[in-house]
Amino acid sequence: MKNKSYIGVSLIILIFGIIFIPRIIDKVRNNDIVEQDRLNVKDKEKTRDAGKMVYIEQYGEKKRVPDFSFVNQHGDTITNRDYLGKVYVIEFFFTTCPSICPIMNRNLIDVQNEFKGEDDFGIASFTIDPEFDTPEVLRAYAENYGVTNPNWNFLTGDREKIYELANAGFGIYAGKEETAPGGFAHSGLFALIDKEGYVRSRTDSHGNPIIYYRGYIEQNKSITEGQETPQIDILMEDINNLL
């Protein structure tokens, strides 16, 4: 009886080896099986998707730039339709900002210079202090920073409409706040818009859209202290991809 049991067990092992071992070898060759402490297959797929350009969706639909109409630094009326056919960056700022705006706009000057001579690239900078930031003030500000791109408009107009565009239209906070530096609070984020007027971004290492691009980091704080880095380099890459 014992000999029969040994024979039965041996047959099972032989059948297992014939059927399954070649499959296991194939999986190892195809990198489908990895060490336990490495990413699983789904995580590897997400990692491969990092940096992929995607549309931002809201309520199941691709998010478009809301309609807007404001006056630029030259006294001309500029609308979202003027940017159709162009890839452009949107920011919210104010000229007397003592904190993040100078950093953001110096970074945008670098972006401008990277795409010098590119007719299909532009920037739209909306002031959140339109009472002070008249077209004349905005023109002087643009000249001081070295703005040369003819498609970079510094826009002013009705304050409530600008705040509605920032807060409801983009979800980029802007508002009057007495305790904030300069009396106004806003985020240091840039939005990227494609030639058809859709909000676009890249995906992170988890496959999720980053939505907006960080335009600055706080001064006197190092990355080792947990401070995130600005995303100007990847913004330039994504502008180039959309162009």
Results as ranks from 00 to 15, higher is better:
F126G: 04
G60W: 06
A140F: 06
I56T: 09
Q112V: 07
Y173G: 09
N80F: 06
A142E: 01
I7W: 02
F170L: 15
N240L: 12
A50V: 10
S222P: 07
D129M: 03
I211H: 11
D129K: 01
N80T: 06
T79Q: 07
R29C: 11
F93Y: 11
D204L: 01
F184I: 03
D49E: 15
S205T: 13
M104P: 09
E35N: 10
L155K: 04
I172S: 10
D110Q: 12
G157N: 03
V137T: 08
V41T: 14
A140P: 02
D49G: 12
S69H: 07
I109M: 13
N240R: 15
I33H: 02
S187H: 04
Y141V: 02
K86C: 02
T203C: 01
K161T: 11
V9M: 08
A166S: 10
M1R: 12
Y88H: 12
M104D: 07
Q227N: 11
R214K: 13
N107A: 12
R214E: 10
H74E: 15
V199Q: 14
D158I: 05
N240T: 11
G60S: 14
Q36K: 08
D194C: 01
F115A: 00
V9F: 13
H186K: 04
F190G: 14
G117I: 00
P181F: 04
G85N: 01
E164F: 04
T127C: 10
A50F: 04
V34E: 04
I172C: 08
P98Q: 12
V9A: 12
N151V: 01
N30I: 07
D133M: 01
K63N: 05
V34P: 02
F190I: 08
G60H: 07
K161C: 00
D37H: 14
N208D: 15
L192Q: 02
P98E: 11
D43K: 09
T77D: 04
E114A: 11
A185W: 04
L108D: 01
D194S: 07
N241V: 13
E131D: 12
K161G: 09
E164M: 13
E228H: 14
V28K: 04
Y163V: 03
E237G: 13
E45A: 15
N149R: 01
I162G: 06
K116A: 12
R214T: 11
L84S: 05
G215W: 03
V147N: 02
I232H: 05
G60E: 10
I24G: 09
L138I: 05
Y213P: 06
T134Q: 06
I12R: 02
D120C: 02
I123R: 01
L165K: 10
Y145E: 09
V147A: 03
P22T: 03
N208S: 15
Q58S: 13
I21C: 06
I210M: 09
D49A: 15
I25G: 00
T95S: 13
A168P: 10
F121R: 00
V34Q: 14
G17L: 08
F20Y: 11
